[in-house]
């Protein structure tokens, strides 16, 4: 537990997370946009519990509302109905218990890597000494200690996203949400980043929810893979990944990987067919007949 000033005692660090309370709990969460004066439902009643210090991957067809769901959990978008709880307490707005990494790094181009990571700490009013210590730790954690003075324009795409992850971790969130964080990277770099992400997770012990389009990535990283239906997003399947940790790309149980991936793909294919129907504008999305809602 860090002794930084300004940190409320009621805010447990990720390493002290109480395992009896779910890290994230969604209860009947609905969300909709107004498009051309019409209410379009994006999330259609989601119930979900995510255990502390687990990794959960969200997969689903394009535009099914995965990113929207992350924003609702992060408190950036208000749920139209239902409640979102993090560590047993409701999320009512942007919340320091949740760190969100966007699809793009979204760094401030005029700030150095160091100053970008310091941004949340400055906003939260931490003093200079505490900021410098924390940022130095975080840059070390993502392997960018030597790049602290570099501007985003001088960093590679992967480095920028690492800065963004360090920034999201600045306020020691219990939950880290990742919205396709490595989608802009080439597949080799991406594979390496996934390994790094696991190593990072082992050290910080936060709960991670990530959106991905890659089934292989979901299986490699996650304890649970949640398959979502097209809009309005509902849970189609909840697939447990039975692979031991720590995971390294070379020594995964190939049979288990194949079996899990096939199961996810089967659910996803059903969902994607619906996506075409919805895109055509006639059939409302429905859950699969063989759905496995826990």
């Amino acid at each position: 537990m860090s002794a930084e000033p300004g940190r409320a005692l009621s805010e447990p660090g990720p390493s002290t997370g109480d395992t009896s309370v779910p890290a994230i709990r969604l209860d009947g969460v609905r969300f909709g946009f107004h498009i051309d004066g019409r209410q379009t439902e994006v999330i259609g009643g989601l119930d979900l519990e995510i255990a502390p210090r687990s990794i959960v991957a969200l997969v689903g067809p394009n535009g099914c509302g995965k990113s929207t769901l992350l924003r609702v959990i992060a408190g950036l978008l208000p749920a139209r109905a239902g409640t979102v709880e993090v560590e047993g307490r409701p999320v009512t707005g942007p919340d320091s218990r949740v760190g969100l990494v966007f699809q793009e790094p979204r760094l401030l181009p005029w700030r150095s890597a160091f100053a970008n990571v310091a941004f949340p700490l400055e906003v939260a009013g931490r003093d200079r000494v505490a900021r410098e210590r924390r940022v130095t730790d975080l840059l070390g954690l993502v392997g960018l200690r030597d790049w602290s003075r570099a501007r985003p324009a001088e960093l590679s795409g992967g480095m920028r996203q690492r800065v963004a992850i360090a920034r999201a971790l600045a306020l020691e969130p219990a939950v880290l949400l990742l919205d396709e964080p490595f989608s802009a990277l080439d597949s080799l770099t991406r594979e390496r980043f996934n390994v790094e992400l696991l190593r990072l997770w082992e050290r910080i012990g936060a709960t991670i929810v990530l959106v991905t389009h890659s089934i292989a990535e979901a299986v490699f990283l996650a304890d649970r893979v949640l398959v979502l239906s097209p809009r309005p997003a509902q849970l189609v399947a909840d697939v447990a990944v039975e692979l031991s940790r720590p995971r390294r790309p070379g020594d995964l149980d190939a049979a288990a990987v194949t079996r899990t991936a096939a199961e996810i793909r089967a659910h996803l294919e059903g969902a994607t067919d619906d996506a075409f129907a919805v895109a055509a504008g006639d059939v409302p999305a429905h859950a699969q007949p063989d759905q496995a809602i826990p």
Partner: peptide, 12 residues
């Protein structure tokens, strides 16, 4: 606007 949303997520 994406930078503004990022800033909002840290409760500026």
């Amino acid at each position: 606007r994406r930078l503004l949303e990022m800033a909002r997520s840290y409760r500026v």
